[in-house]
Design a protein around this nucleic acid. Structure first.
Length: 581
RNA sequence: GCGCCUGUAGCUCAACUGGAUAGAGCACCGGCCUUCUAAGCCGGGGGUUAGAGGUUCGAGUCCUCUCAGGCGCGCCA
């Protein structure tokens, strides 16, 4: 409907332009917005105020000229000039009523658009290190990313989701050694388990798994391993331990433990995401970049283009040439490449896989990292404007008023799985996307648990359940229902509550598109709350199952359409729509 | 110290990305069930948008400074 108004306004402006007014504005730049106050009509535009400035004329007079030259149409009842020069559009009742037919005709396609032009899009999110189960902080990224994918799909983008698996590097080695130590414990070895190794109980589970599968295959005793007396720092001790462990076990055995750890934890992560309702199209392994030499190729490419220099025995990338505050190391003095190096190769692959729009969803603690990634893509000749890095602020965790410290290493964290078990998938998903992603989120577990019945998600689901219930009652009471197909049969829907509900239903496509292109799924959550409110109000004010066939059919058709929009909206957010509660 | 994010009702947050009288939910007060689910509806109180300047027809939104909180500034990932 906005598009139609834009066209009408543009036609009016064309008439004026041939007259005396200078109109330097594109049709799509004419801004039309839903009014906040119903007394201002349904839509409003500030076009007259913008053009009055350029033409140095009175905005209200210009507004009047524009509205007089608007082509006649049956869906606009009348226009008004208001305030400093707004043009307000009041729609005819037919315009509102026709929404119902549109919703039912389009079915699940209501709210979809082609704005994305089928552009191939990659959304990478979560990508937590496979060193432990997902915790509550990851949940926010998961819920947000999944909603972004759904919204972009509905807006006409060709979307694929991806999880980048950091299955290489020091953290994985620490995980491997932690597991091996627990394994040794199972054979009665007394271990002084290092503080900075992974403490979680899931490590012990993997150790048991190893023992079951491989029996005593990985046992060796070398007193140096359990000698804790050196005066190295704790990090150095851990690295020494890793080296010793690798040497004693040998590449093959060490590799088996490494792989077992990785697979067990990936399985945990996948299961947790599954019960959270989040699935990925692709899991991209960091290690694969190393094995198939993509990483080396990438570094050579940069070297050939003189983006790399050597200093202090390390290879540095000139990221400062492209906006970063300093240059960054790609290959360390000891010959090992950095995480950043493989990340360049990874992002290069995203461009090579022909994605036109690349979205990364990162925790806000990575914001210092965006400059160097952008710099690396520019250096490789890829436009960094095609790479959109969205930062999600941290979820600070509270139990009542007590702030909990979260650390994967120490094993002190609430897992996503625990959260889903405690508050339910629907409430958790909704809770996470309720607030803007750049807002800090205080996630109070006590509150989420104790108030789960007050959670707004139930309010919305309840509206859907009530609609289903009405149709159940209809059958029980032997009422008939014939879905209305003709606009004239909907003319009985002219009560203020009905018009309000129709008006909200009409906004749905705009809400979806706006939420998608601005990456703000919370807009949809707020919209659904309003829509549910409109329905509940209507429900309390009017009876649907009435004896008058014409009225009953019209009202049931309206609430049928309402239920479908609520269900579709919740689906985008990963929330279910129960038929009874 | 430098950079990024944030500061809106007692609490948790919105405000269609510069629009009209800043809105919801909790909490508080008062009404509504012999009628399709009261997990609901209706009404009420509650604000110097952290503070001070600036930009313009118009600022919670943009610019500058100050204050407060969070995060980041590795040859970690």
């Amino acid at each position: 409907m906005k598009k139609q108004l834009q066209t009408l306004l543009y036609q009016s402006l064309e008439v004026l332009e041939s007259d005396e007014v200078e109109v330097s504005i594109e049709k799509n730049d004419i801004k039309i917005e839903h009014t906040r106050d119903p007394s201002h009509g349904e839509f409003a535009t500030n076009i007259a105020m913008l053009l009055a400035k350029k033409n140095k004329c009175n905005p209200r007079e210009l507004a009047k000229k524009i509205s007089i030259n608007l082509p006649k149409t049956d869906f606009i009842e009348h226009t008004e000039i208001a305030g400093p020069g707004f043009i307000n559009f009041f729609l005819s009742k037919n315009a509102y009523q026709s929404i119902v037919l549109e919703i039912l005709e389009k079915g699940k396609k209501y709210g979809t658009s082609k704005a994305g032009k089928n552009k191939s899009t990659l959304v990478e999110f979560v990508s937590a290190n496979p060193t432990g189960p997902l915790h509550i902080g990851h949940g926010r990224g998961a819920a947000y990313g999944a909603a972004i994918c759904n919204l972009l799909k509905k807006t006409g983008y060709d979307v694929r989701s991806e999880y980048y698996v950091n299955d290489s590097g020091r953290q994985m080695n620490i995980l491997t050694v932690s597991t091996w130590l627990r394994y040794m414990e199972l054979f009665g070895e007394k271990i002084n388990f290092p503080d900075n190794a992974y403490q979680g109980n899931y490590i012990k589970d993997i150790a048991s798994e190893l023992k079951e599968k491989y029996s005593d295959k990985f046992i060796f005793s070398n007193n140096k391993i359990f000698d804790n007396s050196s005066n190295q720092s704790s990090d150095e001790k851990l690295d020494t331990l890793i080296d010793l462990c690798m040497n004693e076990l040998g590449e093959e055995k060490y590799g088996v433990i490494h792989k077992t750890c990785l697979n067990s934890i990936l399985l945990i992560i996948k299961n947790d995401l599954c019960s959270f309702g989040v699935e990925f199209d692709n899991w991209y392994s960091e290690n694969s970049l190393i094995e198939n030499m993509e990483l080396n190729k990438c570094i050579s490419t940069l070297e050939n283009k003189s983006w790399i220099y050597e200093k202090d025995g390390a290879k540095w990338f000139r990221s400062s040439k492209h906006g970063d505050v300093k240059d960054r190391v790609l290959v360390r003095e000891n010959g090992q490449s950095t995480y950043f190096a493989s990340d360049i190769a990874y992002h290069k692959s995203k461009f090579e896989r022909q994605y036109k729009k690349i979205i990364n969803i990162w925790g806000a603690d990575h914001h210092g990292y965006t400059d160097r990634i952008n710099a690396s893509m520019e250096a490789l000749g890829y436009p960094s404007k095609n790479l959109e890095i969205l930062l999600v602020q941290f979820a600070a965790l509270f139990r009542g008023k007590k702030k909990l410290q979260m650390s994967t290493r120490s094993g002190e964290f609430i897992t996503l799985k625990e959260l889903v078990t405690e508050v339910g998938k629907d409430a958790a998903r909704f809770f996470y996307i309720m607030r803007k992603s750049e807002q800090h989120l205080d996630f109070d577990i006590e509150l989420a648990k104790s108030e789960s019945n007050d959670n707004p998600v139930y309010y919305i689901q309840y509206a859907h359940a009530r609609i289903c219930s009405v149709f159940r009652q209809m059958k029980e009471k032997n009422y008939s229902f014939i879905q209305i197909k003709k606009l004239s049969d909907l003319s009985v829907l002219d009560d203020t509550h009905e018009i309000k509900l129709l008006s909200s239903l009409a906004k749905y496509p705009d809400v979806i598109e706006n939420a998608a292109i601005s990456y703000e799924p919370h807009q949809l959550a707020y919209y659904l709350r309003e829509l549910a409110n409109d329905f509940h109000t209507y429900y309390n004010a009017n009876q649907f199952l009435v004896d008058n066939d014409a009225i009953r059919n019209a009202r049931l058709t309206l609430i049928d359409a309402t239920g479908k929009v609520i269900k579709d909206g919740l689906l985008q957010l990963g929330v279910s729509s129960p038929e009874e509660m």
